[in-house]
Amino acid sequence: MLRPFTLHRPETADEACALLARLGEDSAAYAGGTELLLMMKLGLLRPRHLVDVKRIRGFGEIGLESHLGPRGPSPATAGGANSEGTRLTIGAAVTHRAVERSALVGARCPLVGSVARHVANVRVRNVGTVGGNLAFADPHSDLATLFLTLAASVELVSPRGRRELPLADFVRGPWETARASDELLAAVRLTPWAGDTAAAYVKFGVHERPTLAVAAALRLDGPVGAGRRGGDRIVDARVAVGCVGPKPERAAAAEACLRGASVADLEDAARAASDIAAAGVDPADDLYGSADYKREMVAVFVRRALGIAAARARGVAPATRFPHAVVA
């Protein structure tokens, strides 16, 4: 049951920030409400003012570099090769569903679209937003883990101006971010992988929310995928692990030991990388499982994610049928 509140519907970010600044702790930014309204119903949050950010220009858009103007290529032309450095911007109020169906996302960050297809369930995807997901910093979020491998940063606006913060710094811990109370999460920026990259995202767990999630991206020294064989050596690797610790983390040491390895013969390197990744996580005993089990599952699924990414790089259909696991 929801307690009464006043609903504000600003049309500009400045207006919204002014409201948040004025109302302070008594207010909350509201977009899809799938997390916020849930917490309010459970009595965990009791804001008396909700500031609806969905009408703010640009907040509902997906574009290249800046979402504030429709400067990105039209979806029809979006299929071209990535131009290095052009970032994909997803407005805070874009729903998971819109991400799943966006041609631009599909062209620039295809794995993001695939992962969006598996967030929670179809009703949550239809309403829940990327911004809300990141701003709540639920440790069992899918997006944050994946976004870490895309050098994500978030754009925060406040009466004091705008600032951009790496996602890794924005998410501080469970339900804790670097957002000041008068700041608004406006967008997330993703740096698409170079064209010679193959990737995978795997989540595992029997509960409503995943026990663990792994995102892995391998950049090769040549083209990837069926019919474009040529790349074999890994020149760059990104591995992120989420849900098991207080916040999702990149596994830098694991990434390092993948560089230079061959995707055709990845087993040893993948095993080493997955063991390193597992050693680096900080799980706790909770209803999702014991710490040692979760650590071991990190090793298993980092290895599997790397195997899937490597298979994709080679244009081979990977084995993706694991019980209680979703592969994107």
């Binding site: 409400g33 799938t34 849930l38 119903k41 369930n121 179809v122 009703r123 949550v124 239809n126 409503e208």
Partner: peptide, 19 residues
């Protein structure tokens, strides 16, 4: 928003009417 018993369609999209 887990069980779906409250599902209705809003402009054709399924939503949890409870939340």
């Amino acid at each position: 928003q887990v069980c779906g018993a409250c599902t209705v369609l809003v402009d054709g999209l399924a939503v949890s009417a409870c939340t």
